[in-house]
Design a protein around this nucleic acid. Structure first.
Lengths: 208, 208
DNA sequence: GCCTGTGAAGCTATTCACAGCT
DNA sequence: AGCTGTGAATAGCTTCACAGGC
């Protein structure tokens, strides 16, 4: 089992390999890729060890090959089908982010309870009414979801998603959701992150 | 020095104390607050140790007092003044999130390079043209900033912010920024987070 | 010589477990 | 009896440092 931290860095390495390496570059040493990712070379080599990838001591890593090996681990056999609930500003921003980035992620359904938004196609993606969560998630065999609804609804939405078969949730609502231990949950509370950054900024300022 | 993880949890505890505890509740035991935050009671007690707060073994923690003590550590003496660069969907979502939440954070300036947005007031906050970054950040003595610009601009914006005196950056652009070691940087790449969640969702699904 | 892969060491975060208090 | 505060143990993550290969 690959660790949380490692998976996140692998995603970054792949992006760098695909988007930030000059197409003429065939081989790369660990210190070069590590420097692009702002991690230590040892860290990078450990991460590659986790996916069983080996480079050549004399030439380094084969760029295309490494990107492919990371993809084989992260993406599995087919593109990940994702649902997103809550088409406010944040939800729409995430849909276009993901769409704009070359990636194996597909947001295949979005949900909202506001009638002005539902039934329409927003940012190139069909938006359903929120009662349809169970129906659509089951039919489309979706196991990954993003929650961008207001705080008060978040737990209810999470329960319904889990019930319909979702196994991983990325939560942007600022409330700690309660899910069964067999559902992977990542919380991304914006305010908490900003309070943290503000705290450490002040620390740095004070010891100037 | 309080650790990264602890500061983030403290922010959550305070929010729970202020928003999720029935106003009639005067005292709370560590296991009660820990359960609301989905952490272990031991974890909670360690975190409170870090800010030097003590409860009573018989009654637990005094709700109002604890919230105040956390605030004294996180907020410092005055509200944190924050700048946000990039008023797309994501930027606007964050501005209204922060505004809607009772908090000591104030987004006092936003920036964009699109003329249709600049000079206007969006989500209750003045939006300046991006050339004004140095001027406004220095004048307003801002040390904390959020970056929500497209990938290609992110590094340039970060350099300018740092130059103008910023000491903490919350970065939503999917590129690892390079900043001096005395600037605190938190990356929140949406795609990387989603790829991670999709990966672990698949793991859970496979060992059903 | 300078790289990779990796055992071992070092460091950080979390949990255990219990003394001490009420 | 049941809580808190905390030393000690454990688990997890990162870096060190070096054997082995080109």
């Amino acid at each position: 089992m690959i660790s949380d931290r490692t998976v996140e860095r692998l995603s970054l390495y792949r992006w760098l390999l695909e988007m930030r390496v000059d197409p003429g570059t065939v081989y790369l040493f660990s210190h070069q890729l590590a420097s692009m990712a702002s991690v230590s070379p040892a860290q990078l080599r450990r991460d590659l060890m986790a996916i069983g990838y080996s480079g050549s001591p004399s030439k380094g890593y084969l760029v295309k090959d490494l990107a492919g090996s990371i993809g084989a681990v992260l993406d599995g056999s087919e593109p990940s089908r994702v649902a997103l609930v809550g088409m406010g500003n944040l939800g729409r921003a995430i849909v276009s982010f993901v769409r704009g980035r070359k990636s194996q992620l597909q947001i295949v359904a979005t949900f909202d309870k506001d009638c002005r938004k539902t039934g329409r196609v927003i940012s190139g993606c069909r938006c359903y009414n929120q009662d349809k969560i169970e129906e659509v998630v089951e039919k489309e065999k979706i196991i990954t979801a993003v929650i961008t609804v207001p705080c008060a609804e978040a737990q209810k939405v999470a329960d319904r998603l889990v019930n319909a078969g979702v196994r991983g949730i990325l939560n942007y609502a600022p409330v700690p959701l309660r899910v069964p231990e067999w559902v992977y949950l990542e919380n991304r509370d914006v305010t908490a992150a900003l309070e943290k950054v503000a705290y450490f900024a002040r620390q740095e300022e004070e010891r100037k």
